[in-house]
């Protein structure tokens, strides 16, 4: 009997712990000033961003969290579209690796896309985007995979010979250490020579919409 009571006590303890943890899980706008201090957003920008987050996170399930379907829906206005990059960006936003985005993850990731964000943050993010296997370098095979996938998504058609030739030339230029891969330093040098590679890393909307 005593053992049984002890078991019930332990179970209650575990349940209370779980509830407590769940309550502490930050979902919404807890303290805009902390986020404003730790990102490039102003307090009013954080508040405006939260309104956007609420809209996106309630599109499919109104739970104050963004799942992949809601993420795709917000980006493309359809959840049917296949996009390697949308998947990749979602995974990079999802720093807790639990398949959903809370407001803090969303705001911290979007902060990199702010016009005032440091260039190095944009370079790092774009590097991670292309480093599909997260090995700390971009392999030729990853580049080929991305080229083929994005061409297929867009309906553009290039022969394998042309694709191979473009990738050869890219590595001739970027892979200055001649080890068959592009590391972060080589990526940084390539991006500085071709600033257009960071074009999608800046969203003017974050300044215009969030302050209006």
């Amino acid at each position: 009997m005593l053992q049984c009571l002890e078991g019930v006590k332990q179970l209650c303890g575990v349940l209370l712990k779980c509830c407590d943890l769940d309550l502490k899980q930050p979902k919404g706008l807890e303290d805009p000033e902390i986020l404003a201090r730790e990102t490039v957003f102003s307090v009013s920008e954080v508040e405006a961003l939260y309104e956007l987050f609420k809209k996106i996170s309630s599109a499919v399930i109104d739970d104050g969290l963004i799942n992949k379907e809601e993420f795709q829906l917000a980006l493309f206005k359809t959840n049917k579209k296949e996009s390697l990059f949308a998947d990749r960006v979602f995974d990079l936003f999802d720093t807790k690796h639990n398949g959903i985005l809370g407001f803090e993850e969303f705001a911290r990731a979007l902060s990199v896309f702010h016009p005032n964000a440091p260039l190095d943050e944009k370079i790092d993010f774009s590097f991670q985007l292309y480093d599909l296997k997260q090995q700390g370098f971009i392999e030729r095979q990853e580049v080929k995979q991305m080229v083929v996938a994005t061409l297929a998504e867009s309906g553009m058609n290039l022969s394998d010979e042309v694709i191979e030739s473009i990738i050869d030339k890219t590595f001739e230029e970027a892979d200055t250490k001649h080890d068959g891969k592009i590391d972060k330093e080589e990526w940084r040098n390539l991006v500085l020579r071709h600033p257009s590679l960071l074009k999608n890393m800046t969203l003017q909307y974050l300044k215009v919409k969030c302050t209006s």
């Binding site: 292309y130 473009i166 030339k169 074009k199 999608n200 969203l203």
Partner: peptide, 27 residues
């Protein structure tokens, strides 16, 4: 095809990819 050889693979990915996060802000 000659012109396509002058762009690098990442520029090509950028052109072909539909990824543009501005979709978040458009109704």
């Amino acid at each position: 095809d000659k012109n396509s050889h002058q762009i690098n693979a990442f520029q090509l990915i950028g052109m072909a990819s539909s990824l543009d996060l501005s979709g978040f802000f458009e109704d």
